[in-house]
Design a protein around this nucleic acid. Structure first.
Lengths: 214, 214
DNA sequence: GAACGCTAGTGCGCAAGTTCACAAGCGCAC
DNA sequence: GTGCGCTTGTGAACTTGCGCACTAGCGTTC
C-alpha cells in the first residue's frame, strides 16, 4: 500500500482533487458511503478509472458496499498534503496578483497568501487584502522565513523567469505560473501553468473546425 | 495536407498556441526563419515533437533551412481560427467575472467580451469595463444576436451547470469553466476548465511528497 | 555539377494512460 | 451456514502520445 504511493501516475494526481471535492459534497449531504460509479458520475469520469485511481492510495473500499466517504476523504486529504496549511507567495501585485490576493478561496482551502512581491518600489509597503507588498529582492529571505513552499507568478511575461529564479532561490518547491510565457525551473521543482488566452485559443481551434468535422 | 488537418491530436492542439506565441516573439525580433530546435527551446518542448506537431498543419518547413516565421505564423493563426475575432460571453459578474471583463488581454487577443450575464437583478444594467450586464434569462437571444461562439462561466459552483445549459441553448459551442465544479455538456460542445484551487492542490501533493521521493 | 552540411519530415518501438471484463470478497437474507 | 447480489480491485488489451533515429531533400560551396 504505502509502497505504491510513491508511484501515483501524474494523470491520477491531477484527478484526486476532483474526487476530493465530490467527497466533500457527499459529507455535506451526510451520505456515509459511495460507490465508484456514483463518484465517477460526480467527478465526470469513468467508474473503472475511479477504482484504479483510488487503488493507488490503498484498499480503502469495501466490496459489495463502496467507499466510506469520511474515511476516504481523510486518506485523500492526507495524501494530497491538505491536512496542514501551505503558505503561498504571490509575485506580481498588478491586476491579476491583486485579484488573486483578494480571492478568499485560497486561504479557505488551506493556501493562505503569506506574502506579496512586486518589483515596483511604488507598490512596496501597500497592503492588499491585509497582506503587505514587499520588493522582489526580498523574496529569498522573506519566503524562507514565512515557510512558503508554493509560489504563484502573476507578473508580466517579461518578468516571469526572474520571478521563478528568485522563488527557486528562496527554496520554493512548487510554482504556479499565470504569466503567458514558458519558464524553466531546475529539476525537482514542480511547475504548473494557467494561461487564459491559451485556453481560449484552444477552444477557438475546435470552434473553427466544428462545422468541417461534422 | 488538408486531409490530415482533420485528425490533429488533442495534445498537439494544446501546444499550437504556445508555438504561436513563440512565433510572435520571433516576428517582433525580426527573425525571418526558425529551426525546430530553436522553436522547441522557446516553447519548452522536444524538437522532434515540434516537427511532428507542425507536420499536422502541412509541410511548411524547408529542409536545411527551417520554417519561415511569418508564413508559419499565418498558417497557424488560420488553423487556430485566429484570423477573425471570437466574441465571448461571460456568465457571472462577481469578482472573477468582473476581473475577466476588465482584463484587456482577452480583447487584445481577439476575444472581445461581447456580453456579461448575471442572475442577480441588482447587477443587471450596470456597466463593467464598458460592457453592460444582462440577466441570465436573456443569454439565449442576446448571445445568438451577438454571434457569441465561446462562453466563459465565472459563477459560483452551484450556478455553473445552469449557466452551461443556457449557453448551450444559445448555440455556444465552446465553454471555458472557472467554477470549481464538474459540468456536463452535450456531445459536440467543447469544454475546458480552469480551477485555481485544484492546481494548488496538485502542487501540494508534489510538495508533500518531495522529501519522500528524493 | 558534385559533394557536403544542415534541417524537415516520419517510421517505429516504447511508455503512459484508459477501458474492459472478470475474479475476489463482503454483507445480507433465509 | 450457505447462497446470492453487489461492488471493489486488477490483469490485460487497447489507445494515445512521445522521442529516437533515420531518410529525404534543400542550399551552398568549390
Amino acid at each position: 500500500m504505502s509502497d505504491r504511493a510513491r508511484h501515483i501516475p501524474e494523470a491520477t494526481v491531477a484527478r484526486l482533487p476532483v474526487y476530493l471535492r465530490s467527497l466533500a459534497e457527499l459529507v455535506d449531504d451526510k451520505i456515509p458511503t459511495v460507490s465508484s460509479e456514483r463518484l465517477a458520475e460526480m467527478a465526470g469520469v469513468n467508474a473503472a478509472k475511479v477504482r484504479k485511481d483510488l487503488s493507488y492510495l490503498g484498499s480503502y473500499g469495501t466490496r459489495g458496499v463502496g467507499y466510506d466517504v469520511e474515511y476516504l476523504l481523510f486518506q485523500m486529504s492526507r495524501e494530497l498534503g491538505l491536512t496542514h496549511d501551505w503558505p503561498v507567495a504571490i509575485v506580481g501585485a498588478g491586476n491579476l496578483g491583486s485579484a488573486l490576493a483578494n480571492y478568499g478561496g485560497f486561504t479557505q482551502r488551506g493556501f493562505p497568501v503569506a506574502a506579496l512581491f512586486d518589483s515596483d518600489r511604488a507598490k512596496v509597503g501597500q497592503e492588499i487584502h491585509g497582506v503587505e507588498v514587499h520588493h522582489t529582492d526580498d523574496i529569498a529571505p522573506l519566503a524562507k522565513k514565512l515557510g512558503v513552499g508554493i509560489g504563484v507568478i502573476a507578473t508580466p511575461a517579461s518578468a516571469a523567469q526572474d520571478a521563478a529564479d528568485k522563488l527557486v532561490a528562496a527554496g520554493v518547491g512548487s510554482i504556479l505560473n499565470f504569466a503567458p510565457t514558458v519558464i524553466s525551473v531546475p529539476e525537482g521543482v514542480s511547475l504548473r501553468k494557467v494561461d487564459l488566452a491559451l485556453e481560449l485559443q484552444i477552444l477557438s481551434f475546435y470552434q473553427e473546425h466544428r462545422d468541417a468535422d461534422g
